[in-house]
Each structure stands twice: as C-alpha cells, then as structure tokens.
C-alpha cells in the first residue's frame, strides 16, 4: 500500500517531465539568439582556458567551423547565401584552431578549399597559410596554396613566385613547382600558368568533391586557353586581331567555340582578352581581372563541395 502513492506520483510526473521539457525547449528556441559564428575568443585567452588540452580545443574549434560550413550547404543558392560576416566567422574559427595547434593541417586545408573560391577572403587565407608555412616547415603544399592564391586571386606574381620558391625547396615538392616559380616572373601566360597550377592541385587531391570542382574549373580554363591561342594564331595569320570569337570559326582557326562549364558564353573583350559571361559580376568587382572566376552565381551547392563533409555517422 505504501508503494502505491510514489508509483502513482511517478506516473503523473513522468509525462509532465516530457511535456515540460518539450514546451520549454521550443520556447527556448524562440528566444532571440546570437549568431553561431558571431563570437571569437582571442587566442591568448583560448590557450589559457584550454589548460593542457590545447590540441583537443583545436580539434573542437576546427569541427565547429566544419559543422558550420556543412550547415550552409543546406541553403539555396550556395555560396552566395552565405553572408560575408559568416565567412569571417569561419575564418576566425579556423584561425583560432591554428592558434591552438599551428601544426594542424586540416584548418589550412579547409580554408584553402572554401575561403578563397567561395568566401573571397584571399588575403586572410594567405595570412592563415603563413602560420602553417612557418610551423609545418616540411610541408610543400601550404606555400604552394599561398602561391596559387597570390597568383590567381590577387595577381601578385612576385609574391606568388616567392611562395613557390619556398615550396620547391621542401621535400616531396613536384619538380614543376620550381619551374612555375620562375615562369611567374614572366608577364602574360596567366591562363597557361593557372592551368599548370590547377593540374598540380588536382594531382595531389584525393577528395572526390574537391577534385570535381577542380576539373570543372580546369575545363573552363582549357577553353579560355584554347581561345587565347586561337586569337594569337588569327592575329598572326590575318595581320589583325579578330573582332569577335565567331571570326575564329569563320576563318577556320578553330572548329567551334568551347562550351563554358559554368553555363556562360565565351566572348572577346574590347581589350582583346577572352572572357565569359558567367563571370560578369566578378569582373566588375575586380577591374583589372582578365581571367575567369569560375565560381558563378548559379553554382550547384551539392555538386560543389558536399562530399567533403560526409560524416561517418
């Protein structure tokens, strides 16, 4: 008889517990909340509070960045739906992860894969890579990445050449890196150099998602390269540059104009360089830009990077 009362009470309290947790949980969700990536803890404080678990804290910060990046793939119109402040938040998290453990490769890797192409934080990425280049002094990939960014995004060939020289000195560097470093000092041949860079990056990439990205970019660059060579040929043959790309086909310099894998159309700009319509908005942002910016407004999110973040559970 004595047990009946507690059991009865439990029978009442347990459903109440479930119901109250549900209501409180959903009510809590409705409260105004700060953005996930809005705060960044300064590195010295992080190092201090991590006690002897710096490495673990670094892993945690990296996973936080990774989970956030993965969550943005769910949005429509990726990567343009990701706000600049969110890219900056991602950069801060990756920066914190590498402050805690500057030898940790993955944050540099993710920064290179997402912050440059999609987040347009190229200078910040190179700043991050600098840290890795200093600490991981056996790794040729990081200076290679920084060199690519300097050359491709920032058009700073001299700086790119410096990075590549550093890269070529390190064990395991492809022999190509050294010759690329010297080539960069020579003006022009931008597209050709970009092709060489991307082919090298593709060769060293194991992740299928990133590989796919590189291949599409490479295809676009190959198209532009072929057209640029054809324009040169046309000028040599006819004694004057073509008025439009259609002239190339008309004079049988090439069989047909290649297809832009980013769904744009190639055209000849007034300055004589080959461009593509899928790149128009980017070209306005960077006036001196004479090369394609392969990421464009209709890029498909799933196709772009989803396989990077396949989780094992």
């Amino acid at each position: 008889m004595r047990r009946v009362v507690p059991i009865l009470l439990l029978c009442v309290l347990l459903p109440l517990h479930v119901a109250s947790l549900r209501s409180a949980g959903s009510a809590w969700k409705a409260l105004p909340q700060g953005e996930e990536t809005a705060y960044a803890i300064p590195a010295p404080i992080l190092k201090l509070t991590a006690l002897e678990f710096d490495g673990l804290a670094s892993d945690f910060m990296f996973l936080r960045a990774l989970v956030f990046l993965g969550s943005t793939f769910e949005r429509d119109n990726w990567p343009h739906s990701v706000k600049e402040s969110e890219w900056r938040g991602l950069y801060r998290d990756l920066s914190a992860a590498t402050d805690l453990d500057p030898y940790f490769l993955d944050p540099y890797y993710v920064a290179q894969a997402s912050l440059t192409w999609d987040g347009h934080l190229v200078r910040e990425t190179n700043l991050l890579l600098e840290k890795g280049i200093r600490t991981r002094d056996w790794d040729w990939m990081l200076p290679f990445f920084a060199g690519f960014n300097s050359f491709y995004f920032l058009q700073e060939n001299e700086q790119a050449s410096v990075y590549l020289m550093e890269s070529s000195k390190r064990p395991g560097a492809a022999p190509l890196v050294a010759s690329l470093a010297t080539r960069l000092a020579v003006k022009g041949r931008q597209t050709e150099n970009a092709v060489i860079f991307l082919e090298e990056m593709l060769r060293n990439e194991e992740d299928e998602g990133i590989k796919k990205n590189y291949r599409i970019r490479l295809e676009a660059l190959h198209g532009i390269l072929a057209l640029e060579k054809a324009v040169e040929l046309y000028a040599a043959k006819m004694g004057k540059p073509p008025a439009s790309l259609q002239d190339l086909v008309a004079e049988r310099v090439i069989a047909k104009i290649p297809v832009d894998p980013y769904a744009g159309t190639f055209y000849l700009d007034v300055d004589g360089s080959v461009k593509t319509t899928s790149d128009l908005r980017e070209a306005k942002k960077k006036p001196e830009n004479d090369k394609p910016q392969p990421q464009q407004k209709t890029a498909q999110p799933g196709k772009d990077a989803a396989p990077l973040y396949e989780l094992p559970f």
Binding site: G55, D59, F62, L63, L66, Y103, F104, L105, D106, Y109, V110, D207, L308, L311, P312, F313
Partner: peptide, 10 residues
C-alpha cells in the same frame, strides 16, 4: 572519422 587529413593527429 570526421577529419579529412590528420586523422592520426586528432
């Protein structure tokens, strides 16, 4: 298993 490169380190 969630790490891309330095699984060993983690």
């Amino acid at each position: 298993g969630m790490i891309m490169q330095e699984v060993g380190k983690v």
